[in-house]
Computed example of a mutant assay.
Amino acid sequence: MPHEVRGVVARGKGEPVEVTTVVVPDPGPGEAVVRVLACGVCHTDLHYREGGIGDEYPYLLGHEAAGEVVEVGEGVTNVAPGDFVVLNWRAVCGSCRACRRGRPQYCFSTFNAARPMTLASGEPLSPALGIGAFAERTLVHSGQCTKVDRSVAPEVAGLLGCGVMAGLGAAINTGGVGRGDSVAVIGCGGVGDAAIAGARLAGATRIIGVDVDPRKLEWAREFGATDVLDAREGDVVERVRELTDGFGADVVIDAVGRPETWRQAFYARDLAGTVVLVGVPTPEMRVELPLLDVFSRGGALKSSWYGDCLPERDFPTLVDLHLQGRLPLERFVSERIGLDDVEAAFERMERGEVLRSVVLLG
Rank of each mutant, 00 (worst) to 15 (best):
R221F: 09
R221K: 15
R221T: 04
E222D: 14
E222P: 11
E222L: 15
F223I: 01
A225V: 00
D227K: 06
V228H: 01
A231S: 15
R232K: 12
E233R: 15
V236E: 03
V236W: 04
V237H: 07
V237W: 08
V237K: 08
R239F: 02
V240S: 02
V240Y: 01
E242H: 09
E242R: 11
E242G: 11
L243I: 07
T244F: 00
G246N: 12
F247Y: 15
F247I: 10
F247T: 12
V252L: 02
V252C: 03
D254S: 06
V256T: 05
G257L: 09
G257S: 07
R258F: 11
E260N: 11
E260V: 11
T261D: 06
R263W: 12
A265T: 00
A265G: 01
F266W: 13
Y267Q: 08
Y267N: 02
Y267D: 04
Y267K: 03
R269A: 02
R269H: 06
R269M: 03
D270L: 13
A272G: 10
G273T: 05
T274Y: 01
T274P: 00
V275Q: 07
V275S: 06
L277S: 10
L277R: 09
V278H: 04
V278G: 02
V278F: 01
P281C: 08
T282H: 11
T282E: 13
T282W: 09
T282I: 13
T282K: 14
E284D: 14
E284K: 10
M285I: 10
R286S: 11
R286N: 14
V287M: 13
V287D: 10
E288Y: 12
E288L: 14
P290D: 13
L291F: 15
L291N: 15
L291R: 15
V294K: 15
F295Y: 15
S296L: 15
S296V: 14
R297Q: 14
G298E: 05
G298C: 07
K302W: 05
K302V: 01
L310T: 10
L310K: 07
P311V: 01
E312S: 14
D314F: 02
D314H: 08
P316G: 06
P316I: 06
T317C: 13
L318S: 02
L318V: 04
V319F: 09
D320F: 14
D320Y: 11
D320I: 09
L321E: 07
H322R: 12
L323M: 12
Q324V: 11
Q324K: 09
Q324M: 10
G325R: 11
G325I: 11
G325P: 07
G325V: 07
G325F: 05
L327R: 02
L327Q: 04
L327E: 03
L327W: 00
P328F: 00
P328R: 01
P328S: 05
P328G: 08
